[in-house]
Design a protein around this nucleic acid. Structure first.
Lengths: 348, 348
DNA sequence: TTGAAAGCGCTAACAG
DNA sequence: CTGTTAGCGCTTTCAA
């Protein structure tokens, strides 16, 4: 017997045992109405006794739906996001009856093609996380008719959707909070410059400044990407300024951790000397000292919504110009902990 | 056209275009030697032009290998481990040409059966993480002939393997380090009592005590599970002892974070008053203050080895009594950071 | 309400 | 070296 073969009973075994034809079994199993109740009952009973399991490959082959979704990530899987995202994905998967196949990160390999991988595996739609709109696989995906939902990447294409947080609103609100605490010199430690979320967060930050009567200072912008290292470097630069900021909002919790470390190295206390706010609310945010005030993204919800949207995209007829909303924007939440306090010198 | 159908060229299209039979195409594509070089070259060229992608479902159906592995987790996916584990899994997957299907956490549902899920999806072997040997799906898996590799769970069964860290050695060494720093009152904050790793860590801890001429004190044992909360409670208990420990080794980094918080609440400094050591070396361990001294598990390596072992288990003939080693035990690494120092009152 | 037959895309004897 | 044929497990016309 070949390795990996499904050795359990098949539809023909059931047919034989029930004394009916395979097609009748198929109909009974699939709940068609054109089967007598007696026959159906018998088939179902026998299927159960024989511990029958449908063969997904055979089903997919006859042109049925494969009920398979793919997930592809470019960001290291170690990304603290991914775990929480998966939680929500899982729930939606169960609700809709899909299975999830992990499309490996072979993107480095020039031979590899995400779309081809999906075709080979009969993937009905794909969840995409951590892509840039310059990636090769990205372009290929857009050109294909494969339904896809991107996390945090805004795309306009026929069967492409996206889910993201309300990034602009989040940073805007952060500025408001900080302003209320008396801060007037507020800096921003940015993430990857050409990422979708980064643009919106920066934009929200600016708007927040504006709304609170604060002016934008170019020297108050630092940061390269979402890493700890970037936050660390950026904070050092910020704190070496003649007139240093009293508060800084960071593009990620990791970058905030780096920023905190830099402040500490300079003998500055948080939040007494500088307030720091993060973004994401990863698990470690509450473990760090001082506990990090941050902007929470609801990752499980994002995962859940992504699958639900993908399901709608798949159901949609290829050629129909649908009115289906293809963007899901989720609210963030301000999580107040200990890394933010009143601006120094301010009487509370 | 049915949704999810693979619309690309198939083997017959190639045959037609190349003017040969489908079986010749199949042979050429699969690298059989019984095809002339000229024919092979032509077939390959045309397959390429037609952007041919083999249909995995059809292959699996004819009894070929499905090249699909499954992964099942009971521990919350948010477990900081999972991401790093997946990194190593991914690499091995690519090397061996497998795809990975995520077997959803429907374990709660009494209808759900992991083994049946695997059969339906033609899964050749399954990676299992976070199970207890009392789980229903666990028992079913052992009884089946489905190859499986457990992470951190020791099983003796025909086609079952496991990969784990050298837990006993790790805690033993931790005690040695602490002893060398002058600590004599060393406590242990334990994890889930009946977990495999816990037994070994406790055992190693005891042995460490013994080897360093220290006696075991029952009041120096605390902790319920691997969570932060457990570490927090345990540390409070430990620190309220008349003769409180000067060092504590924790079953996880999360639990160490909780312990640190408890110490802090009691106005104790780390490491001046108490030294703390964690277990795992999750990313946050270096971000916490003081940075956590801990025992690193090489998670990517564990994932990698797990897949490799599973591959061997799959290759193994079902009935052969093999000499294949089914246990992989990986070394841990002592990561020295700032949460451990000389015992209080000791002249350094 | 049931069954016979065709066929999804592919591989594997077996013949030529 | 190449082609013919059967069949993997399933669904789906089409007839009965």
């Amino acid at each position: 017997m070949a390795v990996g073969t499904n050795m359990s009973a098949n539809i023909r075994d059931i047919a034989k045992a029930a004394g009916v034809s395979v097609s009748t079994v198929s109909k009974a199993l699939n709940g068609y109405s054109s089967v007598s109740d007696a026959t159906r009952a018998k088939v179902l009973r026998i299927a159960n006794e024989l511990r029958y399991e449908p063969n997904a490959a055979a089903r997919a082959l006859v042109g049925q739906r494969s009920m398979t979704l793919g997930v592809s990530l470019t960001t290291g899987l170690t990304h603290p996001f991914f775990g929480s995202l998966l939680g929500g994905i899982d729930r939606a998967l169960q609700e809709k009856g899909y299975d999830l196949i992990y499309l490996s990160q072979a993107h480095i390999n020039p031979e590899y093609s995400l779309v081809r991988h999906c075709r080979t595996r009969n993937v009905e739609g794909v969840l995409v996380f951590g892509f840039q709109d310059t990636d090769r696989d990205f372009v290929e995906l857009i050109d294909s008719d494969l339904p896809a939902v991107f996390i945090d990447l805004d795309i306009q294409a026929s069967r492409i959707g996206m889910v993201t947080s309300d990034n602009a609103q989040a940073t805007r609100e952060a500025v408001r909070h900080l302003h209320a605490l008396g801060h007037r010199r507020i800096a921003y430690i940015a993430g990857l410059a050409d990422s979708y979320v980064e643009k919106l967060r920066k934009q929200g930050f600016r708007q927040g400044l504006l709304e609170n009567g604060l002016s934008e200072r170019s020297e108050y912008r630092a940061g390269e990407d979402f890493t700890r290292e970037s936050g660390y470097e950026a904070m050092h630069r910020l704190l070496s300024l003649e007139e240093r900021p009293t508060a800084v909002v960071c593009c990620s919790d990791m970058s905030a951790f780096g920023a905190m470390e830099a402040a500490e190295e300079r003998g500055l206390s948080i939040p007494e000397d500088v307030s720091v706010v993060g973004f994401d609310d990863i698990e470690a945010a509450r473990s760090v000292r001082p506990a990090l005030t941050t902007i929470r993204q609801d990752m499980p919800r994002m995962g859940y919504e992504a699958v639900m949207l993908l399901d709608r995209l798949i159901a949609e007829e290829t050629d129909s110009i649908s009115e289906l909303p293809k963007r899901v924007v989720l609210p963030t939440e301000w999580i107040s902990r200990d890394s933010c306090g009143p601006a120094p010198g301010r009487i509370e």
